[in-house]
């Protein structure tokens, strides 16, 4: 007699849940394997005094977003528009950005 549909779906569910749990185990295994590479990256950053991730190399303000000021996208010439695609993905709106420390001088003049 073939197994009942409910039995098959129960077996399938158990497999699905096991795969879900396995993803956490696999993640832990990969993390352990990549731990030394991560430590090497940290060491390189600290040795070379790097400040940014190398994610977007198309413009200077997207290569080093933490070092560029918020207006650099519009500084190339008067009435310059921001024209790199990454620009729309990288800088958050000024109102949401609280990246700048609230040092006294900065509240008086714009950066």
């Amino acid at each position: 007699m073939p197994p009942r549909r409910s039995t098959l779906i129960a077996i399938l569910s158990i497999f699905g849940c096991a795969a879900l749990a396995l993803s956490f185990v696999d993640a832990a295994r990969m993390r352990a394997r990549q731990a030394s590479a991560l430590a090497d990256k940290l060491e390189l950053v600290s040795r070379l005094q790097l400040t940014d991730l190398c994610l977007f190399t198309e413009a200077r303000y997207t290569r080093h977003p933490s070092q560029a000021d918020l207006h650099s996208a519009f500084m190339d010439h008067p009435l310059a528009f921001e024209h790199f695609p990454t620009g729309s993905l990288v800088p958050p709106p000024a109102a949401l950005l609280k990246a700048y420390e609230n040092l006294d001088r900065k509240t008086e003049v714009s950066d």
Binding site: S66, P92, E101
Partner: peptide, 29 residues
């Protein structure tokens, strides 16, 4: 950083905390 801002009025100090926060907001965005 506050002392730097006061003693070097033509400078802009960027803290590591700010760098981390910039990336946090970039990824959130």
């Amino acid at each position: 950083a506050a002392k730097l801002a006061a003693q070097f009025p033509d400078s802009r100090p960027i803290l590591r905390e700010e760098i981390l926060r910039t990336y946090e907001s970039i990824f959130n965005w």
